[in-house]
Amino acid sequence: MKAIVNVFLKNGVLDSQGKAVLHALSGHGFGTVNDVRVGKQIIIEMDESDAAKAKEKVAHMCEELLANTVIEEYTIEIQA
């Protein structure tokens, strides 16, 4: 089973990298870009056949290590 974890800064926590990319895109003629957020994606392969259990384990991983919940939020997608 595969888990796709996306980690982003929470709303309200300034995303300096997103702002820098936004300015770069705007400066290169991509004037229709309103906002950019930069995050990271973590792909986990695991020996687990139950999707619910897999999601629970990955959520635990996020709380323990993969995200810093003081400043970040995460989403988990489980693929067979």
């Binding site: 800064l9 926590v13 300034l14 300096s16 990298q17 820098a20 810093n68 003081v70 400043i71």
Partner: peptide, 17 residues
Amino acid sequence: LTEMGLLPGALKRNEGL
């Protein structure tokens, strides 16, 4: 120490990158 929760808050990337 902030990652461990021994101190409050977090250290982010410098604003000017």
